[in-house]
C-alpha cells in the first residue's frame, strides 16, 4: 500500500506538471494571446502596453513567466488578468456548487444504473429489455444540456413546480438546495446512467453464465441472493471505474454547459468565463484543479478495484 501511494503521488505530480506546461503554452501559440494588449483596453498607447508588459513581466522569457506563474499557483496568489481578483478564491467560491452538483448527479447515476441495468438483465431479450435498450440508447445520445433545457421548459416554465435555476446553500435552506439542484442532477445523471446501465446489463449477463453462479444456485441460495451477492457483486467491478471517472469529470468542473443552463456559479461556469476572456491565470488554475480531480479519483478507483477484487494487486 505504501509503495502504491508513493508511486501514485509521483506519477500524479508528473501528470499535473505536464498539464500545467501544456496549458500555459497554448496561450503562447494562439493568435491575440498577448494579455497586455487586452488588459490595456481599446485606444491604448504603445507606452501603456509596454508599461503593462513590464509590470506583469510579459517581456521576460516564456520559461521565466511559467516559473513565476507556478510560484504564484503554489502560494495561492494567482491574480486574474481580466478582473484582477484572486483566482483561487474564485474557485473556492464555486466549489460548494460544483461539489453539490457532482455528488447528487453521481448518486442518481448509480441508483438509475443499478435499477435499469438489473431490470434489463433480468428481462433480457423480452419486451421490457427491448424498450429499455431503446430508451437508454436515446438517453445516452441526448446531450445533458438538451435534457436540461427541456426539463427547464416543462417543469420550471410550464408546470412551475421547480425553480428555473440558481443555487441556494445547503446550510441556508436544505429543501431549497435540493429543489434548485434536482433538475441539474437529473440532466447530468440521465445520459451517464443510460450508458452505464447498458454496461452493467452486459456485465450481469456475462456473469450469469459463470460457473460460480451455478455453484451458488447448487448451494440452495435464493434467486435474489444469487443475483445480488454473486452476479451483481462481480458485475459491479468494471462499473467502479466508469462511475469514478464520471464523478471526477463532474467534480473537476466538467458540467460547464449544465452550470450555464441552470445559472449555477460553480467551477464549470468560472472555467467558461475564463476561456471566453482568454484569461491565462484562471484557465491554468481551473485546468490544474480539474486534472487534480481526475488524478485523485483514478487513484481512488484503483484502490476500490483492489478492495472489490482480491485478485487485483496494487503493488507490482
Amino acid at each position: 500500500m505504501l509503495s502504491f501511494i508513493v508511486r501514485r503521488t509521483f506519477s500524479s505530480a508528473v501528470v499535473l506538471a505536464a498539464v500545467s506546461v501544456l496549458t500555459f503554452m497554448i496561450f503562447e501559440v494562439i493568435p491575440s494571446g498577448d494579455p497586455a494588449i487586452r488588459m490595456a483596453g481599446q485606444n491604448a498607447t504603445p507606452e501603456t502596453i509596454a508599461a503593462i508588459r513590464r509590470t506583469w513581466g510579459f517581456n521576460r522569457s516564456i520559461w521565466h513567466q511559467y516559473i513565476s506563474m507556478m510560484q504564484k499557483v503554489f502560494t495561492g496568489n494567482v491574480i486574474s488578468y481580466t478582473d484582477q481578483v484572486n483566482v483561487v478564491s474564485q474557485i473556492e467560491r464555486g466549489l460548494p456548487v460544483t461539489l453539490s452538483l457532482a455528488l447528487g448527479a453521481i448518486v442518481l447515476t448509480i441508483a438509475f444504473s443499478l435499477c435499469l441495468g438489473m431490470l434489463g438483465a433480468v428481462t433480457s431479450g423480452r419486451v421490457t429489455d427491448r424498450i429499455l435498450m431503446f430508451l437508454t440508447l436515446t438517453g445516452l445520445s441526448t446531450p445533458s444540456y438538451v435534457i436540461g433545457a427541456i426539463a427547464l421548459y416543462l417543469l420550471a416554465y410550464r408546470a412551475q413546480v421547480l425553480p428555473s435555476g440558481g443555487y441556494v446553500h445547503f446550510g441556508t435552506d436544505p429543501a431549497a438546495w435540493f429543489t434548485h439542484l434536482l433538475l441539474p442532477w437529473l440532466s447530468l445523471a440521465i445520459p451517464i446512467s443510460c450508458l452505464s446501465s447498458r454496461v452493467l446489463r452486459a456485465s450481469l449477463l456475462d456473469n450469469v453464465n459463470e460457473d460460480f453462479v451455478r455453484t451458488a444456485r447448487a448451494k440452495g441460495l435464493s434467486r435474489s441472493r444469487v443475483l445480488v451477492r454473486h452476479v451483481l457483486r462481480t458485475s459491479l467491478i468494471p462499473l467502479v471505474s466508469i462511475w469514478g471517472l464520471d464523478f471526477a469529470g463532474l467534480l473537476g468542473g466538467g458540467a460547464i454547459l449544465i452550470e450555464t443552463v441552470f445559472n449555477l456559479h460553480g467551477v464549470g461556469q468560472y472555467a467558461a468565463e475564463s476561456v471566453a476572456g482568454l484569461d491565462v491565470p484562471s484557465i491554468l488554475v481551473v485546468t490544474l484543479y480539474g486534472a487534480f480531480a481526475v488524478v485523485l479519483l483514478s487513484a481512488v478507483v484503483d484502490v476500490l478495484y483492489a478492495a472489490l477484487d482480491p485478485r487485483v494487486r496494487l503493488d507490482g
Binding site: 459463470e210 460457473d211 460460480f212 455453484t215 457483486r233 462481480t234 467491478i237 477484487d309 482480491p310 485478485r311
Partner: peptide, 9 residues
Amino acid sequence: DPLSALNPV
C-alpha cells in the same frame, strides 16, 4: 474446475 466454480471474490 473449482477455480471457476468457486466465487473469485
